[in-house]
């Protein structure tokens, strides 16, 4: 296995990835290497292909060209290494289901068709809920939780199979600014044990917590650093951006 900075092992490599829907090119020639314990924030405008990139990594969207390798294998065969937290709007908000049941559904891949969940699944479910500080809410109906608590439950669902890579799609939407810091601290804690790839709109907030930032608008700009040149940024957003420098925002959040 190839090694990156500091001797970390490579967990994923994307080479010359193209994805199109019909005639529309969504992702253009993406190259990306991701190493163990990376914490990458992906920013970029709406429709820039951020979610499509995650879905390609998860094997839900077929590449038109190029390849993705996760621990050397195809995405379809690497599902057990990945935990996925979809955008909150994709998750039903008024459904009669308890927190415990939501998280246990994440164990589906361990059981398969027609087999009942067993005590091992129950234990893993409790463990995952503990790791996001939600163990006291096992029997609560999911729709009775606040946005931030719901998000923790969906993260627990992604953690229930001990993934090596955690993929989050706009996890901060619908979370009170007041508790966002706790939320990101939790991610930082999880990052000690796994690689995290997170999509976000909120450049200011994520830049305080992620290790590196990638910009995506069909084309990917990534230098394995947290600094993004003004030129890259303008290319991504197609407009000059004066305000966003990655040094400043650190303090903005830390002061809370």
């Amino acid at each position: 296995m190839m090694e990156g900075k500091g001797g970390a092992a490579k967990v994923m490599s994307i080479e010359g990835l193209w994805v199109s829907y019909g005639n529309q090119v969504i992702l253009k020639n993406i190259d990306l290497d991701i190493f163990e314990n990376d914490f990458i924030g992906i920013i970029g405008p709406n429709g820039g292909g951020k979610t499509t990139l995650l879905k390609a990594i998860l094997g839900m969207v077929r590449p038109t060209k190029g390849k993705i390798r996760i621990f050397g294998g195809r995405p379809e065969d690497a599902k057990r290494y990945m935990g996925y937290v979809p955008q909150r709007k994709d998750v039903p908000q008024n459904f009669p289901i308890t927190v415990f049941e939501v998280v246990r559904l994440g164990r589906y891949s361990n059981r398969g068709l027609g087999r009942r969940f067993n005590s091992q699944d129950d234990e893993a479910t409790l463990e995952a809920l503990k790791s996001v500080d939600m163990a006291s809410h096992v029997d609560t109906e999911i729709s009775n939780l606040s946005g931030g608590q719901q998000q923790r439950v969906f993260i627990a669902r992604a953690l229930v199979n001990d993934p090596k890579i955690l993929l989050l799609d706009e996890p901060n939407i619908g979370i009170d600014v007041a508790i966002q810091k706790d939320f990101y601290e939790m991610l930082r804690r999880l990052n000690r044990e796994m690689t995290i790839l997170m999509i976000s709109h909120d450049v200011t907030a994520i830049s305080s917590y992620v290790k590196t930032i990638a910009c995506l608008n069909r084309v990917l700009f990534y230098h394995g650093t947290k600094e993004i040149s003004k030129e890259d940024f303008e290319k991504v957003y197609h407009c000059p951006i004066e305000l966003i420098a990655h040094g400043q925002p650190h303090r903005v959040l830390e002061e809370h």
Partner: peptide, 23 residues
């Protein structure tokens, strides 16, 4: 009763079921 877990999975969150490798 045999596919209770599967039906719950696709009713609650079909896309997540897809990620989990459910048909």
């Amino acid at each position: 009763s045999v596919l209770y877990k599967e039906l719950l999975l696709i009713t609650f969150d079909e896309e997540f079921g897809n990620v989990q490798g459910a048909p």
